[in-house]
Amino acid sequence: MRVCGVELKGSEAVICMVSYKGDSYNVPECRRHSFTLSDHEGQEAIREFHFAFHKLLEDYHVDEVAVIAREYKGKQAGSASSFKLESAIQLGNTPVVMITPQAIRAQNKRNPPLVDFAVLELRKFQQPAFEAAYAYLTQKRFAKD
């Protein structure tokens, strides 16, 4: 199973893919690390984001998408453009699940990754997306056991 973790920050979607097969987790090579929405008010920009994101999911045979949930109001609330990105992600054929930061921390505390993040060939800004994908995969894996 391959999961794409997504962290939405402003008008940017940072991604990281994690796959689980047999008894091992892998972080496959990916041509993109993030998507930026150039014009959050323009319909064409949203369509371009939607197409590019879902083309990547299709090309890499992603089974599910795990998006880090954001607050709707208050100081930690997500921006309007991040919610537009979320909608564009959810409109595809790939199942999308929202996972809270608290659930990610709890799951990764129970089942920490067996490799240090620094060893993975990922950029530092991808760490939250990696943690979301890994937490979701381990949650699904141990739910079946």
Score class of each variant (00 low, 15 high):
85 L>V: 06
17 M>S: 09
21 K>A: 04
14 V>G: 01
21 K>N: 05
80 A>E: 06
79 S>T: 08
87 S>C: 06
78 G>I: 04
16 C>Y: 02
18 V>Y: 05
105 R>M: 09
104 I>G: 02
12 E>T: 13
111 N>I: 00
113 P>T: 05
133 A>P: 02
60 Y>H: 14
126 Q>L: 07
26 N>M: 11
134 Y>E: 00
41 E>W: 12
60 Y>D: 15
43 Q>D: 14
19 S>I: 03
8 L>C: 03
58 E>T: 14
54 H>Y: 04
98 M>V: 11
25 Y>H: 06
46 I>S: 12
16 C>V: 00
104 I>R: 03
35 F>W: 12
72 Y>D: 12
36 T>E: 15
139 Q>S: 10
49 F>S: 08
102 Q>W: 14
106 A>M: 08
49 F>K: 03
54 H>K: 07
122 L>I: 15
96 V>W: 07
11 S>T: 12
9 K>R: 11
42 G>V: 07
116 D>I: 14
24 S>P: 02
102 Q>Y: 15
138 T>N: 00
73 K>V: 15
41 E>A: 14
13 A>V: 02
53 F>A: 03
18 V>C: 01
16 C>M: 02
106 A>T: 12
62 V>S: 01
75 K>H: 13
106 A>Y: 09
6 V>H: 03
129 A>T: 01
9 K>I: 09
62 V>T: 07
68 I>A: 00
100 T>I: 11
22 G>K: 04
28 P>M: 04
49 F>I: 05
38 S>W: 11
13 A>W: 04
28 P>D: 08
46 I>C: 13
10 G>M: 05
142 F>S: 06
80 A>N: 03
136 Y>S: 00
5 G>Q: 09
102 Q>S: 15
100 T>C: 09
79 S>I: 01
144 K>E: 09
65 V>Y: 11
113 P>Y: 03
48 E>W: 04
88 A>F: 06
86 E>T: 01
90 Q>R: 10
53 F>L: 02
20 Y>P: 00
92 G>L: 10
25 Y>A: 00
15 I>V: 04
6 V>I: 05
107 Q>Y: 10
111 N>C: 02
54 H>R: 07
113 P>Q: 05
69 A>M: 09
44 E>T: 14
42 G>Y: 06
112 P>C: 01
84 K>F: 06
133 A>R: 06
59 D>P: 04
142 F>Y: 13
100 T>E: 09
13 A>R: 01
19 S>A: 06
82 S>E: 09
35 F>M: 13
104 I>H: 01
47 R>G: 10
96 V>G: 07
77 A>M: 02
117 F>C: 15
80 A>Y: 07
86 E>F: 08
36 T>P: 11
59 D>Y: 02
68 I>F: 02
9 K>V: 11
35 F>C: 13
60 Y>C: 14
135 A>I: 00
97 V>M: 12
69 A>D: 11
116 D>G: 14
1 M>P: 11
106 A>Q: 10
26 N>S: 13
1 M>I: 10
20 Y>A: 01
8 L>V: 08
25 Y>E: 01
98 M>F: 13
44 E>P: 11
80 A>L: 07
129 A>N: 01
71 E>C: 08
25 Y>S: 00
107 Q>D: 08
104 I>T: 03
78 G>N: 07
2 R>W: 03
129 A>W: 03
46 I>P: 08
50 H>L: 08
137 L>Y: 05
77 A>L: 01
83 F>H: 02
75 K>P: 14
11 S>M: 12
28 P>W: 08
85 L>H: 05
111 N>P: 02
